[in-house]
């Protein structure tokens, strides 16, 4: 979970990419972590992941982004995929209405598998393809508001808003963790023996299953 593992980073956050097949999940991943885009990337079958370390409010956060197959029949196989995820980027393709219509089903999937505190950003990808647009930005925005999600339109190809989408999710996660840590500190101060310096275990890695805080287990 979001434990301090070594000197390289302060926190490790696991973010999952979800959404229909072909919406551009793998390219969002490669754009964010390697600043690459490929028009002919391989379709993802199992699990792929990549990491990127960045600064959030003076803390070093290592983001571990997971990517998997989007075809419907794969949904039932990926419960392990969601385990320990503290954030999700739910991607649809603005040129394919169906992928937007399926967002609701992906949300259900998240509610079924993921931690209830998971931070979700909905991303309308391929915003560069304006001439093929099938979902208006307004529809995306309205839906996101209704569901209480963050929302951005992104273009992995033009490198538009991809960094911002992850930054937003990671910052929000960081705030949640921070708030929890402060609350824990407060509780420890009120109940524990005074005078001692308090070590905050934001999350104990050996207790990943029972912890309800939104952190990642890997």
């Amino acid at each position: 979970m979001a434990h301090r593992v070594d000197h390289e980073y302060d926190y490790l956050f696991k973010i999952v990419l979800i959404g229909d097949s072909g919406v551009g999940k793998s390219n969002i991943l490669s754009r964010f972590t390697r600043n690459e885009f490929s028009l002919d990337s391989k379709s993802t079958i199992g699990v792929e992941f990549a990491t990127k370390t960045l600064q959030i409010e003076a803390k070093t956060v290592k983001a571990q982004i997971w990517d998997t197959a989007g075809q419907e029949r794969y949904r039932a196989i990926t419960s392990a995929y969601y385990r320990g995820a503290v954030g999700a980027l739910l991607v649809y393709d603005i040129t394919k209405k169906q992928t937007f219509d399926n967002v609701q089903r992906w949300l259900r999937e998240l509610r079924d598998h993921a931690d209830s505190n998971i931070v979700i950003m909905m991303a309308g990808n391929k915003s560069d393809l304006t001439h093929l647009r099938a979902v208006s930005e307004n529809d995306g925005q309205e839906f996101a508001e209704k569901e209480g999600l963050s929302f951005l339109e992104t273009s992995a190809l033009e490198s538009h808003n991809v960094e911002k989408a992850f930054q937003t999710v990671l910052t929000e996660i960081y705030h949640i963790i921070n708030k929890k840590a402060l609350a824990a500190q407060e509780a420890a101060r009120n109940s524990g023996p005074p005078g001692q310096g308090t070590t905050i275990h934001v999350v104990d890695s050996s207790d990943a299953g029972s912890s309800k805080s939104s952190c990642c287990s890997s």
Partner: peptide
Amino acid sequence: MKFDVSLVATEWFLC
């Protein structure tokens, strides 16, 4: 570690 083999083996068995 709570590692689930399906994370790697799904691809192996399907491809």
